[in-house]
Design a protein around this nucleic acid. Sequence first.
DNA 1: GGTTGACTTCGAGTGCGCTCGAACTGGAAG
DNA 2: CTTCCAGTTCGAGCGCACTCGAAGTCAACC
Lengths: 129, 129
Amino acid sequence: MDISTREMSLTVGEAAERVGLTTYTLRWYEQEGLVAPVGRDSAGRRRYTESDVNWLFLLTRLRRTGMPVRDMRRYAELARQGDRTLGARRALFEAHRGRVLARMAELEEDLKVLDHKIDAYRRAEEELA
Amino acid sequence: MDISTREMSLTVGEAAERVGLTTYTLRWYEQEGLVAPVGRDSAGRRRYTESDVNWLFLLTRLRRTGMPVRDMRRYAELARQGDRTLGARRALFEAHRGRVLARMAELEEDLKVLDHKIDAYRRAEEELA
DNA sequence: GGTTGACTTCGAGTGCGCTCGAACTGGAAG
DNA sequence: CTTCCAGTTCGAGCGCACTCGAAGTCAACC
């Protein structure tokens, strides 16, 4: 593994593809402070490092679990303040974890409703047949 | 149980409270065709029957599981067409059920990421302590 | 050296799902 | 009879999270 492989840097397009967001969204996330200013090459183009991509990946998971962009920004701000906010960041994640668990429990309840309904339709169809 | 209890009819406000939506939303749902036109009293005010409320409850579960309003409208249209659409409605629910299951699997994966992160924070805090 | 294509910034636009303000009406309580 | 409250319609507005168009720059390839 040579240096060029180890020091990977991706364009906005490549980074977007890897994390499953659009280039628009990546730039917007940066603008919104969800991502610290990304490094640039000599032509002023963004170069995403591996840790940038890891951070973006984490953001996609937070987003997908329903965290509002506002809270992601707050989290990003904490992260930029270094080690002294580790506790706050953990607390933020633990609170979010609780919400995700609640959401999952909700979905399980809702799934029951769906299943009952499917069953009712099945029985009604048989009735008519 | 007398007749007035058995033939319940609720105002928009009462119905809203029962299903956990606002009166604005209830009227909007009707306007959007998610709910068949609700009966009115002599003064032109909506009166929700028990089956109206049951229908609204079902809508809240569909909504909460992430069904777009567009699809809920399609479902409502099918329901209004009577028994001949039973199969289509079941198919719609089964498809939706699949999406909910997928969503739940996704959340479980995301929860793992959260847990790993919480653990990493815990270890980092210990390191600093 | 010209063309192509991916990048840059900026501000404006979009889609979704409500949410609300305004102006009005009508039944019920004091 | 007046006051109050909850309802009515209509169209406009909002918050969120992107998404895009325009105009320009620049590196890479033929």
